[in-house]
Design a protein around this nucleic acid. Structure first.
Lengths: 409, 409
DNA sequence: AACATTTTTTCGACTGTCGAGAAAATTAAT
DNA sequence: ATTAATTTTCTCGACAGTCGAAAAAATGTT
């Protein structure tokens, strides 16, 4: 709260690090321009960071004009590493990324289709992370963060999974699970949150601060995910992921996996669509693992004019559209990005989705928000996670008084 | 973005001003403790502010113990004034408040019950503000802000009323209206937003930073208002007011004043309750001005067991409860404060409201949020407005390099 | 009147940023 | 080759801000 000269330096160190994070490899002069700090302060800060082993001076490529050639700075890739774990319903992806954001190692492990035992799952996860560490030949202390993404409801403040489509109410604390094998900070985040973060950062980079201050990302799949990214006053993009899939759509609606009736997901998740299409009783929850093929078959029938199949998708679109309308009512109009396998069936839901959005006071008064599609959901989630992780590290670095913690180089 | 020694001073000036704003009359030592600034910097900043005419040194009351008696600082009440205008469906209240927050003058003007012409209304408003200025015998330049609260949908960024229950789609720009008569900054804000702000500030003051980071305030009346206050990381409380009353409840529901079908307000606003109670057709919108007496009569019948009257309130509660549940799903669990005349009928809606809230994933997992009642809505709105206005002034003051603008003392 | 006590101000040290000029490193010209 | 031109980076002194400690101020107590 109180401002001191120390904070001043911290903030400007942060500015330099974030410039490096965004621009990759930057010269002294460019840093000065980008941060609007004077050349003198850039000098002192960069030499400081270099001594701490966070920055590297880079030999300059043959220069274009005359004059002293620029010396470029870049992050020391080896000053920290993060493990990125992406859990999907089909597999778990393990990646190792260095401080500069380069992917150093990656492998994926399929999930057995019918496995719902949480202990089996978490033990395998633990072993696989152990394997990632061993393969890297790094010391466990060099991995500063393990950041995990998953579907479902995540606790705030601690890395605990509170509810998920597969394990339902069996909670899972990743901190407790992984503490024995490495001292890293453990993070757990809803995956669609990072998809939103990633798309928002893309747009901000392209447009230079994305004009609209908010963005919603909807993930259509077995379950329904939503992430919302906001550009704050200082230019940083923050995001969160409300359990949109379990927002009440119709109190008299079908049974949802979460135990309630009429959640959006119970109608618009793949299992909801399947249930409507096959006219299964509303109180029956279909199997947890539905092959995508099944839904594709329903879509084919719908496109061939089968009424009940058409209705299944239309009904899903209605729940999504009205839900999005409610969202926009509360948070204001914002562009909407759609990801997930469900984008394949957007043609069957479009009309009812757009109708729902349209039926909103501010949208009626102004104009329809942009709706865009992103087929590379896995990529987005991974990128968002990496960026968020490394920015976090940057924030920790600027607070470090003496570079003791950053000795790996 | 960039941090300089200038910003440093600004921030610490702000700290001093906010301490003064919260504590009223404070000594040097108390300021130092509260802000955790050193005694030396408190000295330089206070003398600076005193020279600029923003602070006054106050003679000390007979001291208690031995030692040099404390000299207290307080805001110079005459260094600025604000006009506070509160528009309700029955009247318009005009208040003049000085920089220290003291009410200097106030009068109210009744609104003719059937007046829906926006020009007549705005001309009278303009004249009444003119009168407030004249009565004060201040120069128009001494009034730095005119801050207006109203029901309805307010534009962001400019003081324009976009939609209101009375004037509907006839917009009204208060900047254009008032610019001819005074040079002040014009603000227009939804009234429930300030009710939320005010309640949140009360709690923060009482608990020292209110534990729960968010608070929703629901205003039940002819129309339905909602404000959400959030405590930011720096301790400041910010708020906003989504058009909750026009969030879709049921797409097949009754006609709303806004032109859509099934908005929460169309069921839970007084006119919605009236329509249900008297079994008026869903496509008929009842009169704009409904005497409170009418609703009280329906309530009496409901309490005496009249089924249709009971149903009218129950249905309203359902719309409100499910709506609040959706809100909590998107923004996370938070305490709920209820204001407005509608609190008189809460007994008739309680069960269905609580049911709706309860039917939310996070609420089911944790516990029911606190629901509290505040009968002094007018007071809350006024206080919230004043606090927000004066804090705004404080922020402007800290940026002033030379106190030229603050010469009235 | 001298001393004790508490509050406020002042002073020197320290940290941070900035502008301007010096130094460095290269290309182009002589 | 040497010199000049040019561009980039570093360095130095000036300035602004905060802090701790000591001095000064204002009162009560002995």
């Amino acid at each position: 709260m109180k401002a001191s000269t120390e904070n001043l330096r911290k903030q400007n160190r942060g500015l330099i690090l974030s410039a490096l994070r965004r621009l990759g490899s930057v010269s002294h002069t460019e840093l000065s321009q980008w941060t609007s700090l004077s050349s003198a302060t850039v000098s002192t800060i960069t030499t400081e960071l270099e001594k701490e082993g966070i920055l590297l001076r880079e030999e300059q490529a043959p220069s274009a004009g005359r004059g002293r050639p620029r010396v470029k700075f870049r992050q020391n890739p080896n000053c920290a590493f993060v493990a990125i774990v992406r859990i999907t319903s089909e597999m778990v992806q393990y990646s190792l990324v260095d401080y500069a954001g380069t992917l150093k190692d990656r492998f994926e492990e399929k999930r057995p289709p019918a496995e719902t035992d949480i202990d089996t799952f978490s033990n395998r996860l633990k072993n696989d992370i152990q394997r990632l560490i061993e393969r890297s030949e790094l010391q466990p202390e060099q991995i500063l963060t393990v950041s995990i993404t998953t579907k479902g409801l995540v606790a705030s403040g601690k890395p605990e999974l509170l509810w998920s489509p597969v394990f339902e109410d069996n909670t899972m604390n990743f901190e407790d699970l992984l503490r024995p094998i490495l001292p890293a900070q453990i993070r757990l985040t809803n995956d669609t949150q990072f998809a939103a973060q990633s798309i928002a950062e893309q747009r901000a980079a392209k447009l230079g601060g994305f004009s609209n201050r908010k963005l919603a990302t909807l993930s259509l799949s077995h379950s329904i995910g939503l992430g919302i990214a906001t550009e704050e006053a200082n230019g940083k993009i923050s995001s969160f992921a409300p359990p949109f899939g379990h927002m009440m759509h119709d109190p008299n609606g079908p049974l949802c996996r979460c135990g309630a009736h009429g959640c959006i997901e119970s109608i618009a998740g793949f299992y909801g669509i399947l249930r409507t299409a096959f006219e299964v009783d509303d109180d029956v929850v279909p199997a947890k693992f539905i092959p995508l093929k099944e839904i594709e078959n329903i879509a084919v029938r719908a496109r061939n004019g089968d009424h009940q199949s058409e209705y299944a998708f239309r009904r899903a679109g209605e729940a999504l559209g009205i839900g999005l309308g409610r969202l926009l009512t509360l948070l204001g109009p914002m562009p909407i990005a759609i990801t997930g396998h469900g984008t394949l069936f957007y043609d069957l839901m479009q009309t009812s989705i757009l109708d729902g959005i349209q039926n909103t006071l501010q949208v009626r008064r102004n104009k329809m928000p942009d709706v865009s599609f992103h087929t590379d959901e896995g990529h987005l989630i991974f990128n968002g996670n990496v960026q968020s992780c490394l920015s976090d590290l940057d924030s920790n670095i600027i607070s470090e008084q003496n570079g003791t913690k950053w000795k790996f180089n």
